[in-house]
Structures are given as C-alpha cells and as structure tokens.
Amino acid sequence: MTTSDYLLISRGQWDESASPQDVQDAIDRFYTWYERGLAEGTLKPGSRLEARGKCVARDGITDGPFAEAKELVGGYWFIVADSLEDAARIASENPCLAFGLTLEIRPLEAARARAEDVTNETPAAWRSRGG
C-alpha cells in the first residue's frame, strides 16, 4: 500500500484545571512519542509556533494572528500513513490530547490549485453554481 503525508495541526489550550506538572509530563511523553514516530517513519519533522506573527492580505500587512484563543494553532507536524483513518489513529496516541489540545489531520493535496475546483478557498456563491 502507498503511504501519504498528512498535516497534523495542534490547536487549543491546556486545561485550566490541569496542574503544570501534569501538563509537563504530557509534554515530555509527547516528545518521546514524537521521536519514536520520527525513528519509525510515521512522523516527519514539524514545529511549535511562536505566539507572534503577521497577517498578510491585499490591504497590507498587520500584526497577528487574530484567531480566537481556542482556534490558535500551536504547532504542526506531518504524519506518514496509509489512509486518513490511519493518520488519525497515529495522532490519537499523542499524550497532549488528555490535557485539552485538539489535533486536526488534513491530507496534503498534490495537485496544483485550479479556480474551477471546489476547495476550502471556494466562495459559497461559486459552489451553488457548480464551479
């Protein structure tokens, strides 16, 4: 079976009711899980993201990000798996899930973008007319 790469996006914040020691233990176990996945080839390198950033749009460049705290992306990694379901299974082993973080797994699109394809960027009005 051919494997594919999947983007793993870490979102959210630690549970307020968790102790810093319990969260640190989960973080330590995450790095053990991550390093094992790198060695086994089920994970590829990624990174935590700094809190600072810039937003770039047609109107210019501003400080950011501006997402709600619950939507903030804390980091990203890559999973190598046979299917989206297999990638989700691998991600479900992340110890940080027990303390409030959410992981989003997305297949990487190999094809070049085309305006006529329905994608995340397609406006709702375009979808209703089929293109």
Rank of each mutant, 00 (worst) to 15 (best):
M1C: 03
T3E: 02
T3S: 01
D5C: 02
Y6W: 05
I9P: 00
D15F: 03
A18R: 01
V23D: 05
V23R: 07
Q24A: 08
Q24H: 11
D25A: 10
D28M: 09
F30K: 07
Y34Q: 00
G37F: 00
G37C: 06
G37K: 00
L38G: 15
A39D: 15
A39N: 15
K44S: 13
G46Q: 08
R48E: 15
R48H: 14
R48Q: 15
L49P: 00
E50A: 15
A51H: 11
A51S: 15
K54R: 13
C55W: 09
V56R: 13
V56W: 07
R58K: 14
R58Y: 11
D63H: 12
G64C: 14
F66L: 12
F66D: 15
K70S: 15
E71I: 03
L72F: 13
V73I: 14
V73Y: 06
G75Q: 00
Y76K: 06
W77K: 06
F78P: 04
A81K: 01
L84Y: 04
L84M: 10
D86R: 01
D86V: 01
A87P: 06
R89N: 14
A91T: 01
S92F: 03
S92T: 09
S92H: 06
P95W: 06
L97E: 02
A98M: 10
F99T: 03
G100L: 08
L101T: 06
T102A: 04
R106Q: 06
P107R: 09
P107H: 08
L108Q: 08
L108Y: 08
E109W: 14
E109T: 07
A111N: 09
A111L: 11
A113H: 08
A115K: 07
E116C: 10
N120T: 08
E121S: 06
T122K: 00
A124F: 02
A125H: 09
W126M: 13
G130N: 07
